[in-house]
């Protein structure tokens, strides 16, 4: 029994990639094991913890439950694709500024969820932040800081006019 592989092309962090993979493989597995992008983490495999969150055409998805065949021709942004060069994305800056992490395992997923939120709602209320991040579990639980990080990022991004998460 061999896997049936197909050729799938999609953009990852702005770069066109073409892969020979089984289309039923989840996107997280392809990112981590074919493309060497280990920022998105495995936490549950069933879309319940959010540590695998990446952006698909700019919207947050749980990459552990996205079959790679469905991303053909689309654009994926991972934590590695945020910011540019040494310059961090404002959401990354805000997490650093507020020290909104402990072990850091779930942090990339949380950051991607905040990027998604701020694209949709540049000035979210606290309940909107909580709703947007309720699917990103963090056992170390510095949640009050994560709320502050999202608020800080919203403030910086609105003052600098920066709204694009994939810059």
């Amino acid at each position: 029994m061999a896997e049936t592989k197909e050729t799938i092309s999609f953009q990852v962090n702005g770069v066109e990639r073409e892969l020979e993979v089984s289309g039923s493989r989840n996107l997280l597995s392809v990112l981590r094991h074919e493309l060497g992008l280990t920022g998105a983490k495995y936490g549950c495999g069933v879309g319940e913890c959010g540590s695998c969150t990446v952006l698909l055409d700019g919207r947050a998805v749980r990459s552990c439950v996205v079959p790679v065949s469905t991303v053909a021709g689309r654009s994926v942004t991972t934590i590695e694709g945020l910011g540019s060069g040494d310059r961090l994305h404002p959401v990354q800056e805000a997490f650093l500024e507020t020290q909104a992490f402990q072990c850091g395992y779930c942090t990339p997923g949380l950051i991607m969820s905040v990027v998604d939120l701020l694209q949709r709602k540049p000035d979210p209320t606290e309940p909107e932040i909580r709703d947007a991040l309720a699917g990103n579990l963090c056992r170390c639980a510095p949640y009050p800081r994560i709320i502050r990080a999202a608020q800080l990022a919203a403030a910086t991004m609105s003052s600098s006019g920066e709204r694009h998460g994939d810059q």
């Binding site: 983490k41 945020l82 961090l88 997490f95 992490f101 942090t107």
Partner: peptide
């Protein structure tokens, strides 16, 4: 380890 955490560069065993 903060900067490596927010950029996803920090390596856990699975990485």
């Amino acid at each position: 380890d903060g900067r490596a955490i927010v950029t996803g560069e920090e390596q856990f065993v699975a990485d």
